[in-house]
Design a binder for these strands. Structure first.
Lengths: 120, 120
DNA sequence: TCATCATGTTATAAAAACATAACATGTCAA
DNA sequence: TTGACATGTTATGTTTTTATAACATGATGA
């Protein structure tokens, strides 16, 4: 599995609201599949399980079997990689852009009087 | 457009390697659609444009038209929101989990002798 | 043991995403 | 103005995703 496959799987996993809700539900501790289905009343049980398997393939959910129960644990470590490669740098970029914009606005404000006659 | 729609669009946009490549290509300055197509030789021009429209819907690409050219600018601000709501908190969670795990490993190492007989 | 319960598997229909082709538009420069 | 050029639009086929239904398994407790 290439690095791109990994990020594809991760972003895909995060790209559906039901799956993000599941992550939020198991953030503070693992839950059984049944408990998750009870919380997600608008979704069929099979649908929840499909979402869980997408999350599992992305490495965001780790499964532990206890008797006939299946406990779904969050593993947030892959998100840490997303942060490092994609989000962090771009977020920093966003902040830098904002700063540039503000500087530009200030410069333009200063020369506004001179530039006015060239405006449409 | 709800907040969930926004995040759906954003993660979806980030969830395809071709689109992530496009983002990287315009990270340091806008490029025309034609320039992007030249860089992405493995993709059809129409496919590139479809990807661009996905990025545009997610607010990650802002289009400026100059004559017959279309200049695609990166807007990384939406990624900043992803960072704040989804990545940051979960990345922090990952770090906390790691710390917990290390603490647990240490505890178990200390009581290893006593616990050994109960192992399978 | 045996009914029940939690979960798993397989199949299928509908919707969305991806990739391409064919045609259309509007701009530039000779 | 006219041909080449950069881009836009519409249509279409293919593949994935999403959501359910129907059936299967395997643990648990009376």
């Amino acid at each position: 599995m290439s690095i791109d496959d990994k990020f594809d799987a991760l972003f895909k996993a995060l790209g559906h609201r039901a799956r993000r809700r599941i992550l939020d539900l198991i953030k503070d501790g693992p839950k059984t599949t049944g408990a998750l289905c009870e919380a997600l009343t608008d979704l069929d049980r099979c649908t929840v399980m499909q979402h869980l398997s997408v999350l599992e393939k992305a490495g965001l959910v780790v499964v532990e079997r206890r008797g006939r129960e299946r406990w779904n644990h969050l593993d947030a470590l892959p998100i840490h990689d997303v942060q490092k490669r994609w989000i962090g740098p771009y977020a920093a970029h966003a902040v830098r852009m904002l700063a540039d914009l503000e500087a530009l606005a200030e410069t333009e404000a200063r020369s506004a009087g001179a530039a006015d006659k060239s405006k449409v």
